[in-house]
Design a protein around this nucleic acid. Structure first.
Length: 491
RNA sequence: CGGGGAGUAGUUCAGUUGGCUAGAACGCUGCGUUUGGGACGCAGAGGUCGCAGGUUCAAGUCCUGUCUCCCCGACCA
């Protein structure tokens, strides 16, 4: 799989890439810096992701809510590490009014409308939510509290990249409050596991997941856990995080509850989220040179019917195609019939391939006469002839085969490009030769981590559960270590 | 904020040492022929050459200023 032009580093994107999502370019030479327009087809993918994930989130007992997009500046500065982490990438609202310019040709900010306290556009919602939580939580009976929010957030990154790091993005952020640290820690793991399962079942992706190093952890958290996927070029893409916030935020936002014994205590908190970055992960994981390849469980269109006709048999072929569509639609959602008569079948094949539709069904004179159809799989390009009788069954089976095959491919890639290394020379060689993930012991000293990053551009991704307790020598300094970490170059 | 590059049609770009009415491909519109892997022919629409000054008989082309975008780094999901 050569996978040309799929990485966002490429100067020009393949045309199909932009069918899904495109850079926001507005009139008059201006652009909304680093922002994206998500086109209808891309948004339909996001909606499917939302649907699946939202169900899992609600199963955990969380309820959806919505908090303001604006956060008073003073809120952000309460948690020292948190403000340090986000201070450099905040959009700030300082005024609330415009006025006509002197020449009457436009508008400018009215200096008289300066806000008494600046508002920042949320880069994440911990502070604005937790301030409110402090009024909601009075007693041990109010816990645990589980709130989820689907929202847009803004991070003024120095450098943005389509899909993977946009200035504004959509996400889901879960925030929970618990009686004990143990319960919060369990919640952190549960959320992490939810993302891993979601990736497997819906995105058809296998991942590594586990604790992040101190240098990679969320600003304000005690511990951060992450889900790391491997792209086809061997680089890592973190697409979900789950944070153990300890009592850090509870203390500065005065969240306190009266425990059973009557004493006032600070609760323990978690937060976790995934973003539209997942769409990027999907694109980069499954696509090939012919375009997008979508797992059936999140594909906006699961099956597309392509009637092949000439003027003289157009109505007959269309009629037959409609009957097939009707039959399939009884048990399969989103079966599309492309009955356009102004583009050629070849054009249609190509177009739907670019969009990543999992199953294509071709129906022409031959199929009508033989009473069957031709089924073509997007993932393998395999063509199968099929009679009409058991069509639904065959298509359903094909869809689930595709889902499974894509997952297996992803898993094989992850395993085959993960290398165990013993020393620094080997680590350097591995990253120089081919990209991929490396498992290596690390002593936990941030200096070793930094040196490794400096020399190889690879960073620690996470400490998986099965990496704990593996004895060895630190890959950089050689000291004894009992933790095997995943290292990779990351997006 | 550093280092590169680029602004000409909807898009990607060409435009020589300044010189006639500013071009191509794709896309778009119309008509006809086509239609089993991105069809073809003919006709047509589409431009303040990023913006502002300057040099010149003459500027897309030269000079000055300015704005914007893209790529590479530092920062980050």
């Amino acid at each position: 799989m050569s996978n040309k032009g799929i990485t966002p580093r490429e100067k020009s994107y393949p045309e199909w890439y932009l069918d899904v999502i495109e850079k926001a370019e507005l009139a008059e030479n201006s652009s909304v810096r680093g922002c994206m327009v998500i086109k209808p087809y891309g948004y339909a993918i996001w909606e499917n992701i939302q649907k699946g994930l939202d169900r899992m989130i609600k199963e955990s007992g969380a309820k959806n809510a919505y908090f303001p997009i604006f956060i008073p500046l003073s809120f952000l500065s309460r948690e020292a590490d948190h403000v340090k982490g986000f201070a450099k990438e905040c959009a700030v609202v300082t005024h609330h009014r415009l006025k006509e310019t002197a020449d009457g040709k436009g508008v400018e900010v009215d200096p008289d409308s300066k806000l008494e306290e600046e508002l920042i556009v949320r880069p994440t919602s911990e502070t604005i939510m937790y301030d409110t939580f402090s009024t909601w939580i009075k007693s041990w009976r109010d816990l645990p509290l589980r709130i989820n929010q689907w929202a847009n957030i803004v991070r003024w990154e120095k450098r943005t990249r389509p899909f993977l790091r946009t200035a504004e993005f959509l996400w889901q952020e879960g925030h929970t409050v618990h009686l004990t640290h143990k319960e919060a820690q369990e919640e952190v793991k549960r959320a992490l596991g939810m993302y891993v399962e979601f990736a497997r079942q819906y995105l058809a992706m296998e991942t590594y997941y586990g604790k992040k190093s101190d240098s990679e952890k969320f600003a304000g958290a005690v511990n951060t856990y992450g889900v790391e996927a491997m792209m086809q070029d061997g680089k890592a893409l973190q697409f979900g995080t789950s944070h153990d916030l300890g009592q850090n935020f509870a203390k500065v936002f005065n969240i306190q509850f009266a425990d059973k014994d009557g004493s006032l205590k600070s609760p323990w908190q978690t937060s976790w989220g995934v973003s539209t970055r997942m769409i990027g992960a999907l694109v980069m994981t499954h696509s090939d040179d012919n375009g997008l390849v979508l797992p059936p469980s999140i594909a906006p269109i699961k099956v597309v019917l392509i009637p092949i006709f000439k003027d003289e048999n157009k109505e007959k072929v269309l009629e037959y195609s409609r009957s097939v569509q009707k039959e399939l639609s009884k048990s399969i959602s989103n079966v599309e019939l492309d009955d356009r008569d102004f583009v050629s079948p070849g054009f249609k094949f190509n177009e739907w391939e670019k969009k990543g539709v999992p199953v294509r069904i071709e129906i022409g004179q031959k199929e009508m006469e033989e009473g069957g159809v031709v089924i073509v799989r997007r993932d393998t390009s395999e063509k199968v002839k099929n009679g009409f009788g058991d069509l639904t069954e065959v298509v359903e089976k094909t869809l689930s085969d595709i889902q499974e095959n894509l997952y297996n491919r992803s898993k094989e890639l992850l395993i085959s490009k993960t290398y165990r290394v013993e020393d620094f020379e080997e680590l350097k060689n591995t990253f120089e030769k081919g990209k991929g993930f490396v498992r290596a012991n690390w002593c936990g000293d941030p200096k070793c981590e930094e040196n490794i990053k400096y020399h190889t551009k690879a960073t620690t991704r996470c400490l998986t559960d099965d990496g704990v307790g593996i004895k060895g020598k630190c890959v950089y300094c050689g000291k004894d270590s009992s933790e095997e970490w995943i290292f990779a170059k990351a997006y």
